[in-house]
Design a protein around this nucleic acid. Structure first.
Lengths: 105, 105
DNA sequence: GATAAGCGCAACTTCACGGTTGCGTGTGCT
DNA sequence: AGCACACGCAACCGTGAAGTTGCGCTTATC
């Protein structure tokens, strides 16, 4: 499997429903499409698509058990996204530091 | 101005071009629409729209100086996004810890 | 074996988004 | 005054994403 490009991760995080799914998954450790659809205002198919998107970003792993498919969280790619954000902030802070130092002189 | 809902931030981060703009901005401290358009394969108007989106997420601040508009980075909302990500990871780790402890017993 | 649950696939609709083009306006330079 | 630059606004287009519905398959339950 491709190493979950940061692009797919941010794309997955862009959708409110998908974020909701991730939060649910963080506190529930496993979930099914129909289970989620029950607590969401959308159809099972829609949920399924979202789960597919999350799976594409490697944020979720699917496991078929009998007639149901169990999804569970896979938090590692979140680290990549966080790292990207941090890198932008870090570079900015560094530049800020330089400016400050030059002003103090 | 509304306190930059996390939704707008993630939405802004979802676009590769917008991420590029943010990175450029992190290392350059100010930029104009036409300036950016020169180094991107898209028109000035497109860049302008992206900057508007970033501005809507409170990720950049615009300042009109003479006949040009200067945009600069505003990293604070990035913190909110990072915090969201971290919260999901944290809850997950906590649950993992519980599971581990119960297994050790 | 029949029925129901849970899922995947595919077609279709809708709509927001990224992009372009054209035009008008303010600002600066000569 | 005249020209060129940088911008904003608005209209328009094409595509992809989110959602629905319908159908068929497998897996359980009775």
């Amino acid at each position: 499997m491709a190493p979950a490009p940061v692009d797919a991760v941010f794309n997955a995080l862009a959708d409110p429903t998908r974020r909701h799914v991730l939060q649910a998954l963080a506190s529930r450790d496993s979930v099914t499409a129909t289970g989620l659809a029950a607590e969401l205002p959308i159809s099972r198919q829609a949920v399924s698509k979202h789960l597919a998107a999350l799976s594409g970003a490697d944020l979720v792993s699917s496991d078929r058990v009998g007639r149901e498919t169990i999804y569970s969280l896979r938090p590692e790619p979140l680290g990549d996204a966080a790292k990207w954000i941090e890198s932008v902030g870090a570079e900015w802070d560094q530049r800020l530091g330089k400016l400050k130092r030059s002003l103090e002189r």
